[in-house]
Design a binder for these strands. Structure first.
Lengths: 225, 225
DNA sequence: CCGCCGCGTTGATCTGGATCAAGGTCAAAA
DNA sequence: TTTTGACCTTGATCCAGATCAACGCGGCGG
């Protein structure tokens, strides 16, 4: 399916691969129709920056396909990824007009966007959206705190293992229930992106992955488990 | 003022020291009256546990005075503080009935509580509360992400400095604008609590504080800057 | 076909914090 | 007054992960 055909099909939210998990998950058909009218799509290539920290951000968006990262950078260049946005995750903050972090397309990325103004108006009219956003934000807060435990207290090996587990779980959720002993999934991050996420260096990431492979725990095919 | 007199005065939300920053900040007088009817206070001594991770939590609450911590613990005992709840912060999650973390009173603590059921009903009726909760949750998410940068990428010295800065800022916000070269404030955390927050050991915390003192940056009086 | 470049791996070495181990301080209890 | 216990400090040593430095591999443009 070409990109163009793909977008055509998405005109109708019912065809959207994430509509049952995303911000719009709890909307009634008529609310969905309103969203359909104001949504628009943007796509980014792997590596492109969606917005820089501090920049004006006049839209909010859901990740439809691909992976985006939220990163913070210190003046001297040290950077930490603070969020990994997978399909159905919501980016942006109603009620504020600059982002505190860089949003970067880690893979090719398709986002379903709404102008912030319109979205905020929508939120007031349709409580389903506000409630869903609150629930998603609380989930993200829990995830962020889980990540704080990882960053503060886990060893390099445990960090890698946790990351792989998260990616495997999210992959499984979208793909459906295929319970297996050894799950297989694409690893959408470079070593350096993983390092940024885990608070490690890319060398350490590489070494730990090699170690996990030697200890059997994982097997690679290119970039697969 | 005795505890009893203090609670008596708080019957009226207008006397509450946090009512302009807390979950109720945007409520209209009549909404406030509804809250007044269903709120109740609980106090805890320093060191007491408010709830354990995984326990049923049938209330939500605002910190009125004192400091509470949210911590996560791994099976082998490693623990990481994932939130430091200062006056006006909101604890608990509408729409879920167990907490994923321990809530512990770091100092003597007074909380303004609502039964979760009643609070959830209230949220549906009064959008001001739902909006405020969303805004506060988004702020906490930003704070958590800021903390991820600290945990993942900062040195021990920077971690200590950041913590002191946060405490000084929050202290200043409540105390009012007294701009000074050297701010003075109480340090409500033990070395070990700081270590849990910063992802360090208490020895390292102690050493770094000593170092900061020797390098002039701070001065101590018991536990003050 | 070659050379370059973006990734990944691997080795050698260094070091910031962890760990292990005494002590010190102070306030409340006895 | 002495004891006890909760905190804090400081010293000595160790080690996981950072840092520095090659090198390998596949894709791509010339």
């Amino acid at each position: 399916m070409s990109l163009h055909e793909g977008l055509k099909a998405l005109q109708n939210c019912a065809n959207c691969p994430i509509h049952y998990r995303a911000i719009c998950a709890q909307c009634e058909p008529d609310e969905l129709r309103l969203l359909e009218e104001i949504k628009y799509y943007r796509s980014f290539e792997a590596g492109q920056t969606v917005i820089w920290a501090g920049d004006r951000m006049d839209f909010v968006a859901s990740v439809v396909t691909g992976v985006a990262s939220l990163t913070k950078t210190m003046e001297d260049g040290r950077t930490q990824m603070v969020g990994l946005m997978l399909p159905s995750d919501f980016v942006g903050r109603p009620g504020r007009n600059t982002t505190p972090y860089n949003v970067i397309a880690v893979t090719d990325l398709l986002m379903c966007c709404f102008r912030k103004k319109q979205f905020e108006a929508m939120m007031i009219r349709t409580p389903h959206i506000a409630h869903r956003l609150l629930a998603m934000t609380l989930d993200e807060l829990d995830a962020a705190r889980e990540w704080m435990l990882l960053l503060g207290r886990k060893t390099a090996r445990e960090k890698i293992a946790s990351l792989l587990a998260i990616l495997a779980r999210r992959d499984a959720e979208l793909a459906g229930p295929v319970p297996r002993k050894r799950a297989a999934f694409d690893l959408p991050l470079t070593r350096s992106a993983m390092a940024d996420y885990l608070g490690l260096t890319l060398e350490t990431v590489s070494r730990q992955i090699s170690a996990l492979r030697q200890d059997d725990v994982i097997t690679l095919q290119g970039l697969r488990r």
